[in-house]
Write a protein that binds this DNA or RNA. Sequence first.
DNA 1: CTGAAAGCGCTTACAG
DNA 2: CTGAAAGCGCTTACAG
Lengths: 340, 340
Amino acid sequence: MKNTIDDVAKLAGVSITTVSRVINNNYPVKKETRINVEKAIKELAYQPNPMARGLIMKKSKTIGIVVPSITNMFFTEVIHGIEKSIKLNNYDILLSNSNGDAMNELDCVEKLVNRFVDGVIVITPSTTNMKNGVYDEIAKEIPLICINGYSKNPKVNLILSDEENGTRAALDYLIKLGHKKIAFVRGGDSYSYDIKEKIYATYMDRLESNKLVIDIADGNSIDVVKNTTTKIIEEINKDYKLGKEITAFFACNDLMAAGILNACGMLEIKVPKEISIVGFDNIILSEMTRIKLTTVDQNMKTIGSVAAENIIKLIENDKLEFKTVIIDTELVIRESCRAI
Amino acid sequence: MKNTIDDVAKLAGVSITTVSRVINNNYPVKKETRINVEKAIKELAYQPNPMARGLIMKKSKTIGIVVPSITNMFFTEVIHGIEKSIKLNNYDILLSNSNGDAMNELDCVEKLVNRFVDGVIVITPSTTNMKNGVYDEIAKEIPLICINGYSKNPKVNLILSDEENGTRAALDYLIKLGHKKIAFVRGGDSYSYDIKEKIYATYMDRLESNKLVIDIADGNSIDVVKNTTTKIIEEINKDYKLGKEITAFFACNDLMAAGILNACGMLEIKVPKEISIVGFDNIILSEMTRIKLTTVDQNMKTIGSVAAENIIKLIENDKLEFKTVIIDTELVIRESCRAI
DNA sequence: CTGAAAGCGCTTACAG
DNA sequence: CTGAAAGCGCTTACAG
């Protein structure tokens, strides 16, 4: 069985109080005593029980991260960014996957809170939850950061990559190339899709062009690649004569863009000759596809490191000032678009 | 502040013992009392404190997973597979990233154990740790499964995808296509690389062909794609006249294969015309690259679900019989190889 | 069927 | 500088 603080105390011939003090280094301890205790700790390979500790201190040196999917590299790249900074500060990560379900997402957060994580980062929270103010409540109880989730009245610390600007840049680019008939491909319940669609709608209205919004249910899991392919093939076969009614696709993430690319391949539609495609995120996949994707870089590493810094500030200053950080996005032009 | 079992007891007018009993449903409680308590629980939105619980029961309904990288889709796809089965049984996941460092890996495991996870799954453990028997020790204390880690004397539960067969299939295929001068590209400290290299060596000996092993330090992180590209370009520029001294690459995972493909692209070497490439894993990336990769499917979903089933069996039967499960691999022929 | 009490492994006033 | 004691929020013999 694991050694406890009692074992250490006995071996060192002191009280558990003293042992606790040398571990936490928060009260004066005579040098000699300290050395003895440290020896005992080493000898027994003693490690404090984090459960017992957490029970008292309500702290755990752990931050919780909730993502809608673990197979979408956008999220893993952000997590990677968070991890680097957070480890430097001796925090650990507890990762939780909501599978893109709003209720599930809340469940994940609650479980993390119950485990006394010191802070929570939710990446791409569901719009439902952002809108109904749950996170405003949660933020009162625990340091919370939402990445790419938005609410008008943000009582939550937000990190937003500038998806609006990114969307505009992508759309402007397509329009500059002469495209007017642009289809919009999105996933389910999240701000990232909503905000992009809104801008898309504005653009289409201005161009007096018809809107075509294609919704791929679970937009974040890796399965979306194949689901998109299927769906796009279906759509094309059903109604739309590509190259006539549609000349370009705007995809809300690179996974969907890759799916569209595949669909075009299977239908022998040439990209970018007959159809242009813009993706979003700039995950590594986007530069590996057979036609390299033109996409919008979200700077995942920056998002991650800013999130890490801020959550630690929030935790250690114990001040919860609500603020919003905007991270730049950038259009990355590669091969998947062409002028008509 | 959060409500505790005391608050519930008070509100329901019973002792905390009784509350505990209705929560855990492990002792008879009068129907009426139960209903009262349940009402109180609902009213206070009471949730038992998992720390307090864990402290006593040394159980947490959580299993820990340790991976060397979170940005390699092989791992996320395995995790995805684990997650599905595990959630059905009401377990949660604690995910930990070792960044491919052996010491770090042990640290991760220890931290998980300290948090009273009920079992640990280590995906692609470091060879060092497998060899020096640490995991044999750990397996005595806690249900443990290692995926794609191997030791001759396995006192640990192992799940191995049949990487040997997979490697042979890939090499046989290349040889059947007429290749003899095959370079081998691997990453750092892991059984998956070692076993493949061993087989590669045997093949090269049999062919009386020179070995060329290229080591990309951190073989699992997403950065390996770019690192491989750089390294391969360097190697080619340095010594090797491709198409003469080397006609094919065997890459230990698809990320590296993608990196090689990129390098060839940048050097204007045609794949598969001038150079053939075989990858390993069959992550989704492999069918999205500009030349679709011929690769070896590891059946990540199966690995994941078998791991999940087994760890739960291990936990709930409390019997630690050591056994090894082998998962089939399968050569997937796509576009990146060609006869010479 | 129910409750008082001990105890899980720690930290932190309090007293010396 | 050090220790005895209370307490964090639970579960589980033990007694009734």
